[in-house]
Nucleic acid binder design. Structure first.
Lengths: 133, 133, 133, 133
DNA sequence: GTGGTCTAGACCACT
DNA sequence: GTGGTCTAGACCACC
């Protein structure tokens, strides 16, 4: 698989699977049309309960990120207009606000936070680029 | 109180209380040395169980954001070096990375995300300023 | 269980549970990776309320002594760099100072206190060894 | 006064007063026969509730460390055979054991703990000496 | 008055 | 099955 899960994390495993797939798609490690491992394969290769993987796949399908073709398998979906775009954008804004509050309590001023943000963007692009090579 | 909790949200109530107090401190609605409502007051005014509020207050104390004076009440603490700064910074970085991934799936490019970020910072400062007036 | 709690003691029960687990780990009665009884098991076998045990387990997790695996149970953690090492070291120093003061009021001179200390260390190692056999 | 109390500490204030007096006596800052400030004086000079100070004085008298002469005042007692010596010795042993367990979790080996102990004893004697000068 | 602890019992998310 | 959360209501230590 292209990502890992940590059963000891406080983040639910099914959520880690969702995040892992989303990250793999965003990094272009997998592309639209690519076949994903079946629930059973994924579960056994990552030592997870199939129910857990199934729950993650279900949510990923609901998000329009993957497509399940009955009897054929699961595929990365073609990007279209994101599902629930408005709602997710407002959640994104909310996440940013939480970031700002936490930054205040960590005594980061605006410039330091922006630095951190730019730095994270660079790292992210570098991570993506590293895969392409 | 200076914030609200939504009992129907999937975010635990005690976490909402923590976030609410953190936000109030960050906005300078309350300042170091100010007295917070007692556990019982807070609970009754927000229609929560005292235990729920107590749990939130205890976590806030652990974070060094509030201080408990035995038998007297609870006060906003003087800001000092943040507790677990390194760990929380790394969590902050992680949050930013999740932001980047989600932005990709919402088909926001870097400029659009940066716009959104700057815009949120402006709104945040405006919210803070609004209170001062 | 490998320890007992005294409900009539002035020491909070949850603290006694914390101390008991810490002692069991220090004595190597349980080792990293071992499974601890579930909150419910522990509570019923020691005639405590599950919430009380849960509170102790949560604090032990915060200390990095145990690990919770979601839906699976609780395990003794691999020892790593202790959490809040500096703070706890300073508390240790403080405890030693209290020991010195109390020793003075019990009219123990330095040599007698050191004897007592060495003696306690021997007993402690013997207790540990006894389990290994 | 010869010591301070921190109302924000988790240690009860009356206990801090007890510890403060015990420490002052152990350091010979005050000697047998010396007069202590009255409950009211002590309370007002340290900004405490008189009840709190009274509770501390009561416990100190029970320990045989001070003597209350009705209508005359409170005095440091002549050292005699310590009250409850056996019980307090066993508590001392118990404290040492807790020290050993905590040291294990802080990954201090026997030598390091002994070093710390010797070091604390030296500091203690130095603190005492500093007052004599 | 304050917060801290404990019990009892319920519901939920996760695996 | 596991732990996490929440409510309700009690008692206690402290100030």
């Amino acid at each position: 698989m292209w990502f890992q899960v940590d059963p000891r994390s406080s983040i639910p495993i099914y959520q880690q699977v969702i995040d892992g797939v989303k990250q793999s798609v965003a990094k272009a490690i997998v592309s639209p049309g690519d076949k994903l491992p079946s629930v059973r394969e994924c579960a056994s290769s990552m030592m997870l309960n199939p129910n857990t993987v199934a729950k993650a796949y279900q949510e990923l399908e609901r998000l329009g990120i993957i497509e399940v073709v009955r009897g054929r398998g699961t595929y990365v979906a073609q990007p279209t207009t994101p599902i629930n775009r408005e709602k997710r954008l407002s959640e994104l804004r909310h996440s940013i606000k939480r970031l700002l509050i936490e930054a205040h309590h960590l005594q980061l001023d605006d410039d330091q936070l922006l630095d951190l943000f730019h730095q994270s963007m660079s790292e992210w692009h570098e991570e993506k680029g590293r895969h392409v090579l």
